Amino acid sequence: MKDLLPDLCDYYPQDIRFLPLTLLDYGCHTPFGGQIVTLRCFEDNSLVRDILSTAGDGKVLFIDGHGSCRRALLGDQLALLAVKNNWQGIIVNGAIRDVATLAQLPLGVKALAACPIKTDKRQMGEINVVLNIAETLIYPNDYLYADLNGVILASAALDLNVLKTEP
């Protein structure tokens, strides 16, 4: 089902939060979703590598780069690491790079923009903190669902089996 979010919003109107942020799709997989791991960092993706080096079964990394598009918080090498460790997707409130490669990887990726410049490496950031993006709270361990229609959040996993299956 390519248009997952409209059906989820119709079926679970009281259980979801819409993220009103214009993100572009860069990954090969859409729709995608999973339990959220949060990271807040600014122009430093050291902790992105640390997180994506762990098992990501059923998880989505949500990176709050403070909306900066001056440095790319995700590139091909980190995306390959995410695929290797079974992450479902990555959302970046900031920039990414290596977009042609990302478009070929079995991973959901959304970001504000592309930027060819790498980040600094200072091991700075905060993991599993509540993020406030576009006046929407994003909690660690909540669930995220994304497709070409956008991103929604829920405090518990939504049962996708209740949705229609016809195109």
Rank of each mutant, 00 (worst) to 15 (best):
Asp3Ser: 08
Leu4His: 09
Asp7Met: 13
Asp7Lys: 14
Leu8Ala: 12
Cys9Met: 10
Asp10Tyr: 09
Tyr12Glu: 04
Pro13Val: 07
Gln14Glu: 15
Asp15Ile: 02
Asp15Ser: 11
Arg17Cys: 05
Phe18Tyr: 15
Pro20Ile: 10
Leu24Met: 13
Leu24Cys: 13
Asp25Gly: 12
Gly27Glu: 03
Thr30Val: 09
Pro31Val: 05
Phe32Trp: 14
Gly34Tyr: 02
Gln35Arg: 15
Ile36Met: 03
Ile36Gly: 00
Val37Phe: 03
Thr38Trp: 12
Thr38Arg: 02
Phe42Asp: 07
Asn45Leu: 05
Asn45Ser: 15
Ser46Gln: 08
Leu47Arg: 11
Asp50His: 10
Ile51Asp: 13
Ile51Trp: 11
Leu52Trp: 09
Leu52Arg: 09
Thr54Met: 10
Thr54Leu: 11
Thr54Lys: 13
Thr54His: 10
Ala55Gly: 07
Gly56Cys: 06
Val60Ser: 05
Leu61His: 02
Phe62Ile: 06
Asp64Glu: 07
Asp64Pro: 01
His66Gln: 13
His66Cys: 05
His66Ile: 02
Arg70Ile: 00
Ala72Trp: 08
Leu73Lys: 02
Gly75Glu: 15
Gln77Lys: 11
Leu80Gln: 15
Val83Gln: 07
Lys84Arg: 14
Asn85Asp: 04
Asn86Val: 01
Gln88Ser: 15
Gln88His: 08
Ile90His: 11
Ile90Val: 15
Asn93Glu: 12
Asn93Lys: 00
Asn93Val: 01
Ala95Cys: 01
Ile96Val: 15
Asp98Ala: 09
Asp98Glu: 13
Val99Leu: 04
Leu102Pro: 03
Leu105Gln: 10
Leu107Thr: 10
Leu107Val: 10
Leu107Met: 10
Leu107Glu: 07
Gly108Met: 00
Val109Asn: 12
Ala111Lys: 03
Ala111Gly: 10
Leu112Cys: 06
Cys115Val: 09
Cys115Gln: 11
Pro116Ala: 02
Ile117Val: 14
Ile117Arg: 14
Thr119Cys: 12
Thr119Ser: 07
Arg122Leu: 12
Gln123Tyr: 08
Gly125Asp: 06
Ile127Ala: 10
Ile127Trp: 14
Ile127Asn: 12
Val130Glu: 15
Val130His: 11
Asn132Pro: 05
Ile133Thr: 12
Ile133Lys: 04
Ile133Asn: 10
Ile133Gln: 05
Ala134Ile: 12
Glu135Leu: 11
Glu135Asn: 14
Thr136Gly: 06
Thr136Lys: 09
Leu137His: 14
Leu137Gln: 15
Pro140Cys: 00
Asp142His: 06
Asp142Gly: 06
Leu144Gly: 04
Ala146Glu: 04
Ala146Gln: 02
Asn149Met: 00
Gly150Leu: 00
Val151Arg: 00
Ile152Ala: 00
Leu153Cys: 01
Ala156Cys: 03
Ala157His: 13
Leu158Asp: 01
Leu160Asn: 01
Leu160Gln: 06
Asn161Phe: 05
Pro167Trp: 10
Pro167Asn: 07
